[in-house]
Simulated assay, not measured.
Amino acid sequence: MITPRYCVTMARYNAWQNRQVKAAFEALSPEDLTRDRGAFFGSILATANHLLWGDRIWLSRFTGGEPPVGSIAESVGLTTSREDWALERFRVDSALLRWADGLKQVDLAGPLRWQSGVTGREMVKPVGLCVTHMFNHQTHHRGQIHAMLTAAGAEAPVSDLFVLPDEGPWL
């Protein structure tokens, strides 16, 4: 379904997007970042926190690492400031890049098992599908953040994948 190279490209894309989101956050006041904007998770920061939490939980499933605490509902409060978010986002983006860079094709084959908080049961899905979902989840919620940043008067990131720079820095 997917290749290690695809994962590296998408991890790079994710880090590049998050650097741009961080810059956009710096142009907004704390009130602008936490104002309820009618999005699914409410505010810009809450949506960014949910996305950060989601990346952490999927990465823990792929690597066997420690999952984040809390549920999806609690994910919105993962960090309380743009500075805390930026630091944690950097850490997770670094971990995603290291994970993707170390993948072999065999790592993307076979089933992934996990206990889903969403469904309340054990899930078994192809690893490749789950990795694709993680990257799609990132894009989905960054689209929401993009819309909220635009509505807040901030300059939203360039998000076209074909514009991804060929060279780093990725973090």
Rank of each mutant, 00 (worst) to 15 (best):
H141W: 01
S29W: 08
Q105P: 07
T79F: 08
V106E: 15
A24S: 12
A11F: 04
S75N: 02
G38W: 01
L59V: 02
Q115R: 15
H137D: 02
A39D: 11
T119I: 06
A147H: 08
N14F: 01
D36K: 06
R91L: 06
T79K: 15
T47N: 07
Q138G: 01
R89F: 15
W170S: 08
S159W: 04
G54P: 02
D166R: 11
D32E: 15
T139W: 13
V158E: 05
D107V: 01
A48N: 09
S116P: 00
R35P: 00
P126T: 05
E167I: 05
A151V: 02
W85S: 08
M10W: 14
T79A: 11
H137E: 09
A152W: 12
L103K: 00
A24R: 06
G128Q: 11
Q105S: 12
P30M: 05
V118I: 07
R5K: 04
R35Q: 04
R121D: 14
M134C: 10
L51R: 09
S94N: 13
R89S: 11
G64A: 06
V131L: 05
E83M: 05
V92I: 14
R98L: 10
L103V: 02
Q115T: 02
F90L: 10
A39V: 13
E74M: 12
E31T: 13
M148I: 09
L129C: 04
Q20N: 15
C130H: 03
S116I: 14
T119A: 06
R19G: 15
R142T: 10
I2E: 13
L149N: 02
L28D: 00
L149F: 01
D160S: 09
W53C: 06
A27P: 06
W53Y: 10
G102N: 03
R113S: 10
R56Q: 13
G153W: 06
R98H: 12
E74T: 08
R12V: 05
S116E: 04
P67Q: 03
E66R: 04
P4W: 13
I57M: 08
N136C: 12
L59T: 06
L96Q: 03
G110M: 07
I57Q: 02
K125I: 15
T3M: 03
G65A: 08
H50D: 05
R61Y: 04
A151M: 14
T139N: 14
G102V: 05
E26Q: 15
L28C: 11
D55R: 14
P30N: 04
M134H: 11
L45Q: 01
G117I: 07
Q144K: 14
V127H: 12
D160F: 00
T47W: 00
S71I: 01
E74L: 10
G77M: 00
M148A: 13
G70T: 03
M134L: 10
L87I: 14
E66M: 08
F40K: 08
V124T: 12
S43M: 00
K104W: 11
K22C: 07
G120P: 05
A154D: 07
Q17Y: 02
P67C: 03
E122L: 07
Q17A: 14
R19D: 14
L52I: 00
Y13C: 05
L103A: 11
Q105F: 02
D166C: 07
V118Q: 09
T132N: 13
L108M: 01
G42C: 06
M10L: 12
L161C: 03
G128A: 12
N49S: 03
P165G: 08
R91D: 11
V124F: 13
L51I: 05
E66A: 15
D107W: 04
H140M: 04
R91V: 05
A95M: 13
